[in-house]
């Protein structure tokens, strides 16, 4: 076989690995539930109850036009941890269950295997993004429409936003692959992913808003870069009201996010992926 057919075969094998173990739909169901719940609550609060309270002056003031993007982008601003987790699990499982042995026996070109994993997980990450959008847009727009707000779905900009959300979810999935190659211990990798995304990064992003010079660094944090790529997020909207926030252009945010995936993948390749499989 030549390199191209080898690469396609390796890609088919990676898809086959993903869909022959239950993990992909277990995580997908949790993602759908989590995003649907959050987007629904948010739409109710800001669209319905929030609108009623706005006259009282206590509720957060968000212009009506900003409402749909905030609610729809819950898909990535809250849901991004699922593709990154799935990418990490898919990669560390190879180390944990020693399936790297049959994998490298079938495809001795190890770089090809890692490349195929990147592509396969990007596709699955995009699929996760689509399902997450189905929930956030489906529930969100219904509630917005029911409470007499504009759903924004007639606007081309909204659809362009949705496309960027799918892209962000795809990149998060391959960040997971890179991390998994870098940290082959599954437990350690999961703990690091959860601790960083759910705890450490939100704090860093908040602290970064205190000063100008930290804000310029804060925009390069992966979560911030992801929000910049998407262009709208509950966090940036709230952050803008409280302190210094700087945000990259959408394409720069996307490149920064992609750089995290590539750097982790390259380091992972040269540390764990090329190591002796014993």
């Amino acid at each position: 076989m030549n390199v191209l057919t080898d690469a396609l075969a390796a890609l088919r094998a990676e898809f086959s690995k993903i869909f022959t173990v239950r993990m992909w739909w277990v995580l997908l169901i949790v993602l759908a539930g989590y995003v649907g719940f959050t987007a629904g609550i948010l739409a109710l609060v800001f669209g319905g109850v929030g609108g009623a309270l706005a006259s009282g002056g206590n509720a957060p003031q968000i212009p009506a036009a900003a409402l749909p993007p905030i609610i729809y982008s819950i898909a990535s601003s809250v849901g991004y941890v699922f593709p990154v987790l799935f990418g990490t699990l898919a990669t560390t499982a190879e180390f944990r269950h020693q399936t790297l042995t049959p994998t490298f026996l079938a495809t001795p070109r190890r770089g090809l295997v890692l490349g195929a994993k990147f592509v396969a997980l990007a596709v699955v990450g995009a699929g996760y993004g689509l399902v997450a959008l189905l929930m956030s847009v489906g529930l969100g727009s219904s509630i917005l429409a029911a409470t007499g707000h504009d759903t924004g779905l007639g606007d081309g900009d909204t659809w362009w936003l949705l496309a960027r959300i799918v892209l962000a979810m795809a990149i998060w999935a391959i960040i997971g692959v890179g991390l998994g190659a870098l940290i082959p211990s599954q437990v350690a990798a999961i703990v690091i992913v959860l601790a960083f995304t759910q705890f450490l990064e939100p704090i860093l992003r908040l602290v970064a808003t205190f000063w100008d010079w930290t804000a310029s660094m804060g925009q390069y944090l992966p979560g911030a870069a992801s929000d910049a790529l998407v262009g709208s997020s509950i966090f940036t909207t709230l952050g803008a009201a409280t302190g210094q926030t700087q945000s990259l252009d959408w394409w720069a945010g996307g490149l920064v996010l992609l750089a995290y995936a590539v750097v982790a993948g390259v380091f992972g390749y040269f540390t764990s992926w090329r190591r002796d499989v014993t």
């Binding site: 076989m1 057919t5 075969a9 390796a10 088919r12 094998a13 086959s16 690995k17 022959t20 173990v21 239950r22 993990m23 499982a93 269950h97 020693q98 399936t99 042995t101 049959p102 994998t103 026996l105 079938a106 495809t107």
Partner: peptide, 22 residues
């Protein structure tokens, strides 16, 4: 005898590597 994903069936285990090897 330990290089298997415990959650994957034997048939699917073989299919994965059959695909990789064409």
């Amino acid at each position: 005898a330990s290089s298997f994903h415990p959650g994957r069936s034997a048939r699917n285990h073989l299919r994965v590597y059959a695909r990789a090897a064409g």
